Measured scan of single mutants.
Amino acid sequence: MDVFMKGLSKAKEGVVAAAEKTKQGVAEAAGKTKEGVLYVGSKTKEGVVHGVATVAEKTKEQVTNVGGAVVTGVTAVAQKTVEGAGSIAAATGFVKKDQLGKNEEGAPQEGILEDMPVDPDNEAYEMPSEEGYQDYEPEA
């Protein structure tokens, strides 16, 4: 019985440690998101679009440190934060509304985080759909 109880105690310690790591990862992701939003706020009209992409990228980098179902929630929060940063930029006159959601080359930025393969159960990952990809044929 002692062996059984000791095993359960060790398992509990492992769960607590994993929860603490997840909590730490979420806190880091939130900190990076805040950094990115402050970065966007300090940019001029020309830099705002690039700044919004930076927020998304920093958040995406930190999301990889967070495991399990938390990833889905962090990704949703990050996307809403990026959308909010863009709205703030438009409201303050840093950028025109028609410039939001495009990178410096004018290509749409939507789907940055949505296409990231995420499995809350950590069982399997699927690649994003290939609808947006084109076949590449090298020139002879």
Rank of each mutant, 00 (worst) to 15 (best):
P138Y: 13
S87E: 01
H50L: 15
A19N: 01
K58S: 09
G7Q: 09
G41Y: 09
T59L: 04
N103I: 03
G51F: 01
E126I: 04
L113T: 05
K34V: 06
Y39L: 03
V26A: 03
P117M: 09
E61K: 09
K6R: 05
A90D: 03
V15C: 04
T81D: 03
P128E: 08
G41D: 00
P138C: 04
G31K: 13
A30V: 06
K96G: 02
P108T: 15
S9I: 14
K60C: 11
G51V: 11
S87L: 15
A89F: 07
Y125G: 12
G14W: 05
G41I: 09
A89N: 02
T22L: 10
K6C: 06
T64P: 07
L113M: 07
V66N: 03
V52N: 00
T81F: 01
Y133D: 12
Q99Y: 09
M5R: 03
D115I: 04
D2S: 03
G73I: 13
A78V: 06
A19P: 00
A124I: 03
G67K: 11
P117H: 04
K21L: 13
K10T: 05
V49G: 04
E35N: 13
M127L: 13
D115Q: 14
D119S: 02
V118R: 02
E137N: 10
V15H: 00
V66P: 01
Q99E: 10
V77Y: 15
L38H: 08
I88K: 03
I112W: 15
V74Y: 04
A56E: 01
Y125P: 15
A91F: 15
M5W: 02
A27Q: 13
E35P: 03
G106V: 12
V15F: 04
V15P: 00
G14D: 06
F4N: 00
V66A: 09
Y136S: 10
Q109I: 11
K80P: 03
L8H: 00
V3F: 14
V16F: 11
E57V: 11
E130Q: 12
P108S: 12
G86H: 14
V55Q: 00
Q24T: 07
E57P: 04
G67C: 06
K97V: 15
A78T: 08
V40L: 15
D115P: 12
S129Q: 05
S129A: 07
K60V: 14
L8W: 15
T33D: 00
K43I: 09
N65Q: 05
K80R: 10
S42E: 12
V55R: 02
G93E: 07
A107R: 09
V71H: 04
S9Q: 08
V77E: 01
T33N: 03
G101A: 15
G84Y: 06
H50W: 15
K60N: 05
H50I: 15
P108M: 08
E13T: 10
V77W: 15
E126F: 08
T75M: 12
D135H: 13
P120E: 08
Q62R: 08
E110M: 09
E13M: 00
N103K: 01
Y133W: 07
G31N: 15
A11Y: 15
E114N: 08
K32D: 00
T81S: 03
V118S: 05
L38E: 07
V70S: 00
E123D: 01
E46K: 13
V49M: 15
S42C: 13
A30P: 02
G25H: 15
V37T: 00
V63D: 02
P138F: 10
G93V: 08
A30D: 00
S129W: 14
E137Y: 02
P138R: 09
E137G: 13
D2G: 01
T81P: 01
P117N: 11
A78P: 00
T59H: 02
G47K: 10
L38F: 15
K10M: 02
S129K: 05
E139Q: 08
V49K: 07
Q24C: 11
V48F: 11
A78C: 07
A29F: 01
V26L: 07
K10A: 12
L100C: 06
A76E: 10
Y136T: 02
K32E: 00
E20M: 06
F94G: 13
Y125D: 12
T22D: 11
G93Q: 06
D115R: 12
G14K: 11
A76Q: 12
V118K: 14
D98S: 09
K58I: 15
Y136H: 05
G47S: 14
D2V: 01
A85I: 15
V118G: 08
Q109K: 07
S9C: 05
T64I: 08
P128V: 03
